[in-house]
Amino acid sequence: MIKIDSLSFNYLHKALIFDNFNLSVQHGETWAILGPSGCGKTTLLYLLAGLKFPTSGQILIDGQQLTRPRPRTGLILQDYGLLPWATVRQNAELGSRVRDFYGPDGKHSPTDHESKNNIDLWLKRLGIDEIARQYPSQISGGQRQRTAIARTLALQPDLLLMDEPFSSLDAITREDLQNLTLDLCAEQKLTLVVVTHSVEEAVSLGQKILLLKAPPNRSARVFENPDAGRDSQRNSAAYRNLCDLLWKEMHHEAA
């Protein structure tokens, strides 16, 4: 699904963050990108989203080189990117309205785009149909994140990118939404890439965990975590062991 090929990236007049970096992600996998702040994990997500571009090398998604945000990729950012002047419902509809605005041009929206209204289903599925007429300032952080998820999934993506999506939520809401996200990914056959600074979140969400270190990142260090998201996992010894291992690696890298 995703192939990162000899990726190098640096911000203008800054040191390299990625240097000849390779990675490949298969369809339907869930990935967590973990690392200390400044390691380039958000940068990598933006590269995958087509909002930033490699200095050299390339990123292929389904064999296509990224030159702009790809219509079938969904992106959810930390502060949810909701329009403050639009209701929950209007925010959730935003993606389809943008697509209707351009029509099926293959550039801003897929060539097979048809205007259709499936928003009610998504509002219901995410449990926000009751608050559909409220504004983002009137609802909780968890509800805002549900709105952002509804907005993204309504566009029927096959790849979902999330940047620290749950870090500002309380523990219970966070666990709820992590589970919901995994359920939805399984249900919609989505490939998931989540950026997080939380070891626990990485282990709860990622079947594969990519650990980035202080730049430059030259090779991908990937930890296998096949039990991610299973109900039984959170209390298991394997879960604790992987958390401890990643914790040590992260602090070792930071030191």
């Binding site: 945000p69 930390q78 990117g81 909701l82 329009l83 605005f101």
Partner: peptide, 26 residues
């Protein structure tokens, strides 16, 4: 916020849609 703009771009919005859906109402 840049996040708001980027979120819209990831939904497919180019210059014209950003103007219509973000800058103008803002």
């Amino acid at each position: 916020s840049p996040q708001l703009i980027q979120s819209l771009q990831s939904l497919g919005a180019g210059r014209r849609a950003l103007f219509r859906f973000v800058y103008l109402p803002a």
